[in-house]
Each structure stands twice: as C-alpha cells, then as structure tokens.
Design a protein around this nucleic acid. Structure first.
Length: 159
DNA sequence: GCCAACGTTGGC
DNA sequence: GCCAACGTTGGC
C-alpha cells in the first residue's frame, strides 16, 4: 500500500506570487515562512503531498489552484542573508530555525473558489481557512475537504 | 512567567 | 484604509 498522502493549504498574495506565476515558473522555493506553527507544517510535508494554492489579500480571496510538494523541508537560506526581507539574525547556520519546501505547479482551477463560498459550503465545516482571524499561512487540510474544494473549482487533479 | 506593547496578517 | 485577531518581544 502506498504511503498516506497528506493535504495542505498555502497562502500567497497574488501580487507577490500567484498561481499564474507558479505555472510560468513550473516550481518554486516556498521561502519566507517565519511562524513556528507554519514551519512545523512545512516540515511535515512529504513529496507528492497536494497543496491548495490560496490567494490572500486578493479580490476576492480564495483557492486559485493546486500545487504538489516536490522537495521536502530543508533550510531556508534567506534567513542567513542580511539583505533579505526574511533575514533572521538569531538563526545560526549550525541550527537553522526556518525551513522551506519546493512545490511544483499542478493546475490552475477553472473557477477560483472564493472564501465566501468556502464558508457557505456545509461540506467544508471545520476547514481551518474559514475560521475568523486565521492567519496561519500553511495549514493542513482534510482529504475530503481537499476533494470538495477541487470539485467546487472543477479541478481535474486526482486526489 | 506574566502581560503590555508592538508588529503583522488579511478580510472587509 | 481600517481594524480585529494573533504572534512575538521585552521589561519587570
């Protein structure tokens, strides 16, 4: 039996990096996570895990596409670069504080699934992104919720 | 270890 | 642009 695949949601501001940018680039280093809970989720990701790509600070905010983990967590080099916005002077190379994963493009959903649709759908009860004040930028998603979001966006990814 | 102050996120 | 919610920092 194949190892259990896990499902996730990652947030990105489309003006900074959108699902269209991921399609253009093919894959990317998911750098800049500077929150411990989000980092721990990154470290729990396994190659092949599928990820909902969520556009935050967008009009409207919502799930725009799907990505796949293509390299598991390793140190985020931007934490050691004093010129980087993500520089962390307290992080030591011998014990890196922050990790990143690489993700690759899977698909852009034919229809963006807006946050208000996520909130209205009773089959998505309990989904973290619906919670008020939920700022976590890397979230676990239940398989059933993942499949439902794909259906709402008419995604073709096989779950 | 408490908690006020501060900075950031992100919906609206 | 506003501001609620949240995480982090630092004085004590």
């Amino acid at each position: 039996m194949a190892p259990k695949r896990n499902y996730w949601l990652i947030k990105s501001e489309p003006e900074v990096f959108s699902i269209q940018a991921l399609r253009r680039d093919g894959k990317t280093h998911w750098e800049g996570v500077r929150n411990y809970q989000a980092r721990n989720h990154l470290r729990a990701m396994r190659t092949g895990d599928l990820v909902l790509f969520y556009h935050s600070n967008a009009e409207p905010p919502g799930v725009a596409g799907v990505a796949r983990v293509c390299r598991e967590a390793y140190p985020d080099s931007s934490q050691f670069d004093p010129r980087s916005d993500y520089y962390d002077s307290a992080s030591k190379p011998e014990d890196p504080r922050w990790s990143l994963v690489d993700v690759e493009f899977v698909e852009e959903l034919p229809e963006l699934v807006p946050l208000d649709v996520l909130k209205e759908d009773e089959r998505l009860d309990g989904m973290l992104v619906r919670k008020r004040g939920m700022r976590l930028s890397v979230q676990p998603v239940e398989r059933e919720h993942f499949a439902r979001v794909l259906k709402l966006g008419k995604g073709k990814t096989k779950v």
